[in-house]
């Protein structure tokens, strides 16, 4: 068995394109759930909004990718307002149900035959979505990193993606250390108290939803650009819950929580998978079929989410003091 190869594959995934997409969603969710306490179970809808903005603008309307990014931001803002205005006055669990329902509703709409001309139906939109981005790739044709096995194209996406992810993290840091951040944290603790102190709670929640949604939509844009394909069924509600797992793993309401969580999450998930595949292929494990590894990874993830929430809701590196105070 080639352990080095397993490690290399694992690390490539832990810092790779898919991990980045989820990372953006998690940074956004950290603003919404971590700091403001909004139980947004429809985060995948924002990712989809970004991805579809690129798909529709570039492929359906044959316009510029840069315009698509602007449209993606506008659409995700509109989506946040559309979701938030009617629901942010509701109880937390109702908000959760409405947002997950809305994300499913949107998925069903974009995959429907009625809007096939625009969204491409169940097959989605596939084509050279990120051409304009990849044309800018300055990397030499024979670029190769040690350990990581990205293609030249993926490496370009990864470099820009991580740069933007750090920028987004910086933005969140700037926000949460300000008086604005104090207000949203107060809302997370007790909405009525903050309301009684003269803050327009509703507006703050809406702002948090818009900001978090916008960051998540960036993940969607990256998705479309990197994978050159947008398919409705990739935007299942489970995506949102994977994002929750990532966030909780790294620690909600921690500026670097999403980054830490994302790296650990993908390292474990990919490492576990690669190791099992290798064990099976080399004949060390015979009772498992290769295709069962995929489901085992997700079983592990589900179990991980449960155990995290039960035993370490503050995240792996969280502060025990906060745990003791967390009555919820």
């Amino acid at each position: 068995m080639d352990y080095l190869q397993i490690l290399s594959l694992t690390l490539t995934q832990a810092f790779g394109v898919t991990a980045l997409i989820y990372l953006f969603a998690a940074i956004g969710l950290n603003v919404q759930f971590g700091y403001t306490g909004l139980l947004n179970f429809g985060q995948v809808a924002f990712v989809a909004a970004g991805a579809y903005a690129v798909g529709v603008i570039v492929l359906t309307f044959d316009l510029s990718l840069w315009l698509a990014i602007v449209v993606g931001m506008v659409v995700s803002t509109l989506l946040a307002l559309l979701l938030g205005i009617p629901t942010l006055r509701l109880r937390a669990d109702y908000l959760a149900i409405v947002t997950i329902a809305a994300s499913e509703l949107l998925r069903l709409l974009v995959r429907s035959i009625a809007f096939k001309d625009v969204f491409g139906g169940a097959q989605g939109l596939n084509g050279k979505l990120g051409r304009q981005f990849h044309d800018l790739n300055p990397l030499p044709a024979d670029v190769a990193l040690p350990v990581f096995t990205w293609s030249r194209q993926d490496l370009w996406v990864v470099i820009v993606g991580w740069g933007l992810a750090l920028l987004a993290t910086l933005l969140v840091w700037g926000l949460v250390r300000s008086p604005w951040g104090r207000v949203v944290k107060g809302i997370r603790e007790d909405e009525a108290a903050v309301l009684s102190l003269g803050k327009n709670v509703f507006v703050y929640k809406l702002q948090a939803l818009v900001i978090g949604g916008g960051i998540a939509a960036f993940g969607g844009i990256l998705w479309a650009v990197a994978k050159q394909s947008v398919q409705p069924d990739t935007f299942q509600p489970d995506v949102t819950f994977f994002v929750y797992t990532i966030l909780l793993l790294g620690g909600a309401a921690r500026v670097f929580g999403p980054i830490v969580g994302s790296i650990i999450f993908w390292f474990l998930l990919a490492g576990f998978g690669e190791l099992l595949y290798a064990l099976i292929n080399n004949g060390y494990i015979e009772f498992l079929a290769a295709q069962q590894v995929g489901s085992m990874r997700f079983m592990l993830m589900g179990l991980g989410l449960m155990l995290l929430m039960i035993f370490r809701p503050q995240g792996i590196f969280g502060d025990r003091r906060e745990l003791a105070l967390d009555a919820r």
Partner: peptide, 26 residues
């Protein structure tokens, strides 16, 4: 507001803070 410091609880009470506007906050 349990998971906030006593001082942060107090500062939340002050009104008309420009830092509470999302753009100025940055």
């Amino acid at each position: 507001l349990s998971r906030m410091s006593v001082m942060d609880n107090m500062l939340l009470g002050a009104n008309g803070q420009s830092g509470e506007r999302v753009l100025q906050a940055l």
